[in-house]
Design a protein around this nucleic acid. Structure first.
Lengths: 236, 236
DNA sequence: AGGCCGACTTAACACAGGTTGGCGCACGTT
DNA sequence: AACGTGCGCCAACCTGTGTTAAGTCGGCCT
């Protein structure tokens, strides 16, 4: 079974068999398991490696001295933490596991090696970087100008597409393994209000949520509610 | 007079005279003036060039169908809009002038040319990219978890450092040419509330603001109020 | 089966920040 | 000088979201 990063990239970039093998190889070495709520990379650390998420959900977050936490990005299977770490200085944020996670640790020279003479592989890393940046921008727009229900609807639409890309969505049903406080920190709200909003989406017939699985009942309605335009995800 | 991008980079990267000349040259060709409130790059455009801000303030923003606007980043003199555009697909946001702006248009192959055989120049572009990403993350944390007054204080601290780096701050006094509605769109609030908050910072003795210039009266106090930690800007 | 624990749910109340609308000043235009 | 315009400023009122504090449900361990 190929790693989810390859699954994602195959949809956008034409990969020769050896390209595929090289990309797949990135996720084969140094596989590590991290328990839920443990850090993969600490906030003050000086990272040498990057990580590829193979399974489970993680997040980039910033913690304030008084305990507040802001989740700045969600990392799903197939996401590469920092495609070009080798340029990186000290971390200004942490990467934490939201669920039990399995990751592959990747050394900078493995990346250099993989890129060498393989433009398609380099193209993959660039896509990953640009998509991550676009998601960041959309996130700012969400937290800055969308209402609670719009934010949540938008997030669900985004996750639907991102999980579909790596083959983890079953049609309109997707895994949703994070707690409501986690969602709250990601959307800049309280878990109580997330709960209210969730209820509103549910009674509005837009989604259903049971036992950590989300089912989208009305995709068009959800997109409209969340002012969602898939363009930023740079699909195709 | 060298362009502000060079001024900024000289503080971090050791530049040979030719490196400096090459970087400086990027800002000499195709200089263009854009009036306040005009777009430098439209939201649906398919950009071929990137831009270097030489003078004035611009922003990255997203506009919603109903008129709401989210400013996702502020672009100051010395900022490069997209250091590695040549990888870029369609824009998912716009770049607009907040004040009258002068920019240099830069073609992708100029960048390729500048990098070739000049690792220090490539290093500069990477720094720019990583710093911009870090600022994005901090922005998400701000809008998500900081209160109104913390947000504004944090923004002022950030601008103070960024403007100092390019030699545009006069000690504790900096240009602040944007309107309160602009600040509101950047911080995810209303201009009315920006006004209230500004007043609070003023009466608290932290800043003074007159005729488009901001003076920081108490830097330590302002940093504390904004939970500001300069680390993310990757200085030094 | 029973008990425990973590996460979800709900309700009542409080408040930060949004909305509306009005006033005044500084500038530029004629 | 008169006028228009854009922006800063302010006050009154309103509302979306935060706070606090109880429940409730379901899964897991013994």
């Amino acid at each position: 079974m190929e790693n989810p990063f390859v699954r994602k990239m195959e949809r956008h970039v034409r990969l020769a068999p050896e390209d595929r093998a090289v990309l797949d190889g990135l996720g084969r070495l140094h596989v590590r398991h991290v328990a839920a709520r443990q850090d993969i990379e600490g906030q003050q650390s000086d990272p040498y490696h990057t990580h590829l998420i193979l399974d489970g959900w993680a997040c980039r977050y910033k913690q304030f001295p008084d305990g507040r936490r802001a989740i700045v990005a969600l990392l799903l299977p197939g996401d590469l933490c920092d495609p070009f770490v080798f340029r990186r200085a000290r971390m200004d944020h942490a990467i934490g596991a939201l669920t039990p996670v399995t990751v592959a640790r990747i050394a900078p020279d493995q990346i250099g090696e993989a890129i060498r003479g393989r433009p398609a592989v380099e193209e993959c890393l660039w896509r990953e970087l640009l998509a991550a940046t676009a998601i960041h921008r959309e996130w700012i727009a969400s937290v800055g100008r969308r209402s609670a229900i719009e934010r949540l609807a938008h997030l669900f639409c985004e996750l639907h597409l991102r999980l579909t890309r790596v083959g983890l969505a079953d049609g309109m049903t997707l895994p949703m393994p994070v707690t409501q406080p986690d969602l709250a920190d990601a959307l800049g709200q309280t878990s109580v209000h997330i709960n209210r909003t969730l209820k509103e989406l549910r009674t509005g017939g837009l989604v259903a949520l049971r036992s950590r699985r989300l089912t989208i009942r009305d995709l068009d309605g959800l997109r409209e509610r969340g002012l969602f335009d898939p363009a930023y995800l740079q699909l195709s």
